[in-house]
Design a protein around this nucleic acid. Structure first.
Length: 466
RNA sequence: GGUGACGUGGCAGAGCGGUUAUGCGUGAGCCUGCAAAGCUUAUCUAAAGGGGUUCGACUCCCUUCGUCACCUCCA
């Protein structure tokens, strides 16, 4: 496999993905105080697709995604609902997995939770205190930003500008408004004992602690949404590099936001489309196609029209797949080896070059078009399908698309029914024939009448389609 | 105000210093008993405005305008 290059936010250049035995990826997960939305889904889908691409090319991947299950939002939401913080976060972790499974996301190697790594965080904070990179105030333990000279290198911010433009209400107990909490004192549950007093961890420290624990001091890819660049990832760098005295990660990869009417989708704006909502109306395949239809680093606008467009594409894929699967002819009229080889090469090349999914998709759909065009002329042979299917399945697998499958039993009964219908059609008993077509349709199967032969396919049922 | 990204045909969206991106949409047609799906073909001959560099720029440089994100929690 040739070189993979990815745009690194830190250096703002495309960097070659270098690794020894495996590629280690840490993805900042969600704060579990509510249902996840399609914006979360896009980020996860991007990294899941990247992972599938690497694995399909025999590269080992260790994929870690955390859950932030201790946080002020969780606590206040739990209070509102008269529930424990733990109860609330467990509930949303569960719905997260339900969404993720429906989206055909491969489970991460590990999903560490903040609450299960308090000790690791305390150790890390202690080291930072020892090194004078952190200090205790009356409210908690804070990171001393002035001790980390590279602060701002990821988000391209200068500390003096940050300070002057600070919108944060000033906490007089902090040495500098830029200093951020590593540990917040609190007696309220959930809280933990620490050398400095009872409390709970700040948001940023968990990702440093858990990524270092699971992936080491210097791993290949750290990902997340663009909105995490500052302050979250900036702070992670400050903590981790102060702790290890080493460069933290090799590549920072950030996913663009999903917007609605050009405006960022977020809980605070209140224009959220939840994953389950999108899945209920459009299904996982359309959702995934939609999420990779633009370059990962750019925003995508969520519109019905775009979803619909991707539904049409899904139908083309389904047709292509079933035409290949049900091929019967044996005498090849054309050689498609070149097409198949070329498609595979270009598909990979697009993904190798900064994970250009829209370009890869155009290659993918070109191949589909060519096959469907042969299918329309009834030129698909068994031999062709043997050549195309592995490549098609390779691409489907990477894109995380799952075409509806049928059992052998279903295949048998469909064949019998189709035969019956063909006889009736020959005898021009169309009403009877249509009844059989309806019967087949009730099994979720559509027929495609070619000149000489009827092909069929099982289509995904999409609610939004009328 | 600061920082970053970006502005491509009706819409979505890539690449590239000189050759059709691609898809959707739209028009026409093919196939069909009908339908659905699919296919064929046509259509749009696009680059925010203004300068430059160049034999040649959508692609490089400058500039004006505009959009978005981040600068507080956020994927």
């Amino acid at each position: 496999m040739s070189q993979i290059r990815i745009l690194d936010t830190l250096t703002n250049t495309k960097k070659e993905l270098e690794f020894s035995d495996k590629v280690r990826i840490y993805l900042c997960g969600v704060t579990v105080y509510d249902q996840s939305h399609i914006g979360h889904a896009r980020t996860i889908i991007i990294f899941d697709t990247l992972r599938k691409f690497l694995e399909a090319n025999s590269i080992l991947v260790e994929f870690i995604q955390n859950f932030t299950d201790v946080d002020d939002k969780i606590i206040s939401r739990a209070k509102e609902q008269g529930e424990s913080a733990n109860g609330l976060s467990s509930k949303y972790i569960q719905t997260y997995f339900e969404d993720s499974d429906r989206l055909n996301i491969k489970r991460a190697t590990n999903y560490p939770k903040a609450t299960e790594h308090i000790e690791d965080m305390i150790d890390l904070i202690q080291k930072l205190v020892d090194k004078e990179s952190a200090y205790t105030s009356k409210n908690g333990v804070y990171f001393r930003v002035s001790r980390f000279l590279d602060y701002g290198k990821l988000s391209k911010k200068k500390t003096d500008e940050l300070e002057s433009g600070a919108r944060i209400q000033v906490d007089e107990s902090k040495e500098s408004p830029l200093d951020f909490a590593l540990w917040k004192f609190s007696d309220e549950q959930p809280c933990w004992e620490s050398p400095w007093g009872k409390g709970r961890p700040g948001w940023h420290i968990e990702c440093s602690a858990m990524s270092i624990k699971y992936l080491g001091k210097n791993f290949e890819i750290h990902g997340g949404g663009r909105d995490l660049i500052f302050p979250h990832h900036e702070n992670e760098i400050a903590q981790s590099e102060s702790f290890t005295n080493e460069k933290f990660v090799k590549i920072w990869m950030h996913a663009g936001m999903i917007t609605i009417n050009g405006e960022k989708m977020s809980k605070s704006v209140g224009n959220v489309k939840t994953i389950s909502h999108v899945l209920d109306s459009w299904g996982p395949n359309v959702a995934r196609l939609f999420c990779v239809s633009g370059h990962y680093s750019k925003p995508i606008d969520y519109t019905e029209d775009l979803l619909k467009e991707n539904l049409i594409k899904l139908r083309q894929i389904e047709t292509c797949y079933y035409e290949l699967r049900l091929s019967e002819y044996t005498n090849d009229s054309e050689d498609i080896s070149e097409l198949v080889r070329d498609s595979r090469v270009k598909f990979d090349a697009a993904l190798n070059d900064d994970f250009n999914t829209p370009l890869a998709l155009s290659v993918f759909f070109n191949m589909i078009k060519s096959i469907n065009s042969l299918a329309a002329e009834e030129k698909i042979t068994k031999n062709m399908s043997e050549k195309v299917l592995p490549v098609l399945e390779y691409m489907l697998d990477i894109l995380g698309l799952k075409i509806q499958t049928v059992s052998d039993e279903e295949i048998k009964s469909v064949f019998t029914l189709i035969k019956k219908r063909e006889n009736l059609r020959e005898q021009k008993q169309f009403e009877e024939a249509d009844k059989i077509r309806d019967e087949i349709a009730s099994m979720g199967i559509s027929l495609i009448d070619h000149k000489n032969r009827t092909v069929w396919m099982k289509k995904e049922i999409i609610k939004a389609e009328k």
